[in-house]
Amino acid sequence: MPTEAETELRRLLDIMAALRARPGGCPWDIEQTFDTIAPYTIEEAYEVADAIARRDFTALPDELGDLLFQVVYHARMAEEEGRFGFTDVARAIADKMVRRHPHVFGEATARSAGGQSAAWEAQKHAERAARAETGTLAGIPTGLPALTRALKLTARAARVGFDWPDANAVLAKLDEEVTELRAELREADRARLQDEVGDMLFVLANLARKLDLDPEACLRHANRKFARRFAAVEARLAARGETPADATLDAMEADWQAVKQDERAD
C-alpha cells in the first residue's frame, strides 16, 4: 500500500499530466518549453533560499512544493518527447547518492567528515571523467548565478594550489583592481569598465570564499538591508509630507543615517 507521500507525489504527477494534456489541458502550460520554464525554476529555487534566510518555516513547505513542481514540469515535458520521465530523474539522484556514500550504503567502516568530503570529490571527478569532462574547472555549470560560479571556479582552482594565501592577500588584489577601475574612469570606455568591474566582483567572490562566506548570501543580505532601510527613509519622508522625488539628496542621506543609527540602537 502506498505511503501518504507516495500518494501525494502520484497526485502531483497526474495534475501535471492533466495540465499538459492535449486537448483539455491549460493553454499556458501546454505552450511552455524547457527554455521558457527554466527561468521559473531558478526563481523558485531563490524563493526557497529566501524563505530559509527569513526563517519562515511556515512558508517553506509551499516554496519547496513550487520547486518540486518545476522538477515535475521538466520531467513531464521530457516524457512527452520520449527522452526520460520523472522515474528516471528520481532513479538518477538515488543512484548517485548511493554511489557517493559507500560508507553508508556499501562499506562497513565509518569515514570521517574530512575523508568523506575527499571521497565525494573523488567520485564526482570520476563521474566527470566518464562524461569526458576534462580539466580542473570541468562540470561547473555556466548557468549558475555569476557570483556563485565565481565561488565554485576559485574553490576548484584552490584545490590544485592556485589560490591566494589568505584574505589579506585578496584585499590587496581588490585594492589593485580598484586602482585599475579608477584609471579606466577617465576614458569611460564601456567594454573596459565592464572588464574592470567584473574583475572587482570576481575578487570579492574570492574574498567571501576566503572568509568562509557565500557571496550570493552576502549580497542577498545587503539587498534586504538596503530595501529595509530605504523603506524606512520613505516612511520618514512621508511623515513630513514628502516623497523621495520631493526631497534633496542631502535630506535623504540624513534620513538614511538616522535609520542606520536607529538600527544600531535596537
Rank of each mutant, 00 (worst) to 15 (best):
A75V: 02
F84L: 15
R76G: 05
H74S: 04
D95T: 15
E79S: 10
V72M: 08
T87I: 07
R83E: 08
F84A: 13
R91G: 03
I93G: 04
A90F: 15
A75C: 02
A92Y: 04
E81T: 13
E79T: 00
T87Q: 09
R83F: 08
A75E: 10
I93R: 01
F84G: 06
A92I: 05
R76D: 13
R91T: 12
K96I: 15
M77G: 10
F84Q: 07
E79A: 15
H74G: 03
A78I: 00
R76I: 11
E81P: 05
R83I: 01
D88I: 06
D95G: 12
R76K: 08
F69E: 09
T87P: 02
F86G: 05
V71L: 14
Q70E: 08
V89I: 14
G82F: 07
Q70D: 01
R91Y: 05
M77A: 11
L68M: 14
A78F: 02
G82N: 00
I93E: 07
E80W: 01
A75P: 06
A92W: 05
E80H: 03
I93C: 09
D95R: 15
K96T: 15
F84H: 11
F69Q: 06
A94F: 00
A78T: 02
E80S: 02
V89D: 01
F69K: 05
D88Y: 02
R91N: 08
A78H: 09
D95A: 14
V72L: 12
T87M: 01
F69L: 12
F86V: 11
Q70I: 09
Q70P: 05
I93F: 07
Y73S: 09
A94H: 11
K96Q: 11
A92D: 09
D95F: 14
A90Y: 09
G82D: 02
A92M: 10
E81W: 09
V71R: 01
E79P: 01
D88E: 12
F84Y: 15
K96Y: 10
G82A: 13
V89Y: 04
A75Y: 13
Y73Q: 13
V72D: 00
R83H: 04
D88N: 12
D95C: 04
A75K: 13
T87A: 11
M77K: 02
F69T: 07
A92Q: 11
A78M: 03
F69W: 15
Q70S: 07
R91E: 14
V72R: 09
I93M: 10
M77E: 06
R91L: 15
I93Y: 08
A92E: 10
E79D: 14
H74W: 06
F69Y: 13
F84N: 05
D95H: 15
E80C: 03
L67T: 14
K96E: 01
L67G: 05
A90H: 13
R91M: 08
E81Q: 11
E81Y: 08
D88Q: 13
E79R: 15
A90M: 15
A92R: 12
A94P: 03
R76S: 04
F86E: 01
F84V: 11
A90E: 12
V72H: 06
V89L: 03
A75R: 14
R91F: 08
A92H: 12
V89W: 01
A78R: 10
E79H: 13
L68W: 06
A75N: 02
R76L: 08
M77W: 03
